[in-house]
Design a protein around this nucleic acid. Structure first.
Lengths: 132, 132
DNA sequence: GGTCGATAGTTGCATGGCACAAGCATCTAT
DNA sequence: ATAGATGCTTGTGCCATGCAACTATCGACC
């Protein structure tokens, strides 16, 4: 489980902190989505996410458009710049993993990708049933 | 890579924060070791580790014995209580993963364990060569 | 149509992990 | 013996995070 930490230690490539990359990634996957949805998704308090989003918005990576059906809410999506920054961050991470798995067989790499994806999903499911 | 986060969100079982578990785990693996060694190992500033260790020592989970060869340094090791707490934390985490992988085949689980261990080691190696 | 509880989001506040820098003690090499 | 390196601690500041309080809006019910 220290993998995250190990990766994090060297991701800094795009001078964007890990939490922000994390947020951007989720928005990219599920946009357009509400702030509260995002918060539930990444399991952080909505206040935290609110500040994160504000920051990323100021940086020009994220934009909100009012939800036509609910004037309290807003829809989040990436800007082009945000997409670019995220791409770059992901690329940096991928490069690191690639270097780490340089000597591996293709089968092993594919297996690892497949299994980790599956584990991530499973953990999400467990966490979901867990919390309520 | 969000696996760490996903796990972390539910580990709280032993009311010991994740960072502390992390530290205890490393001490368990490589004891007796110096504070500075530990810091290098987990890639945290020695000041941070100093405070962590002090805290864990106060809690009775860790003990230091003076290094006979170097009066500046100290050797860290777990106390019995520390070992127990760590065990408990690891068990909690394992239980969570077990639940997540409940429907998996034995082969897949073994594979995942093997590959993740290998990835962890590889990342450490890369990070090591990276930094200098 | 108005009232009340639930929900979306923001902001104030406290906490905790972290890094950096300065400092003290000790070690090592010349 | 002196100078620089190393081990550790402490002071300081930063920032992510959670909780609580607040405003605005929604939805349901009378």
């Amino acid at each position: 489980m220290t993998i995250g930490r190990r990766l994090r230690s060297r991701i800094g490539a795009s001078d964007l902190d890990p939490s922000s990359v994390f947020v951007l990634h989720h928005v990219a996957e599920r946009a357009p989505l509400r702030l509260s949805e995002l918060a539930r998704c990444i399991r952080l308090d909505s206040s935290t996410v609110s500040r994160q989003v504000k920051n990323l918005e100021d940086l020009g990576y994220l934009e909100r458009s009012g939800d036509p059906d609910d004037r309290r809410a807003s829809r989040l999506r990436l800007t082009d710049q945000g997409r670019a920054v995220l791409e770059e961050a992901m690329r940096a991470r991928a490069a690191l993993v690639d270097r780490a798995t340089a000597g591996w067989s293709v089968q092993d790499r594919d297996q690892l990708t497949k299994l980790m994806t599956r584990l991530t999903e499973s953990l999400d499911r467990v966490a979901g049933t867990e919390t309520r």
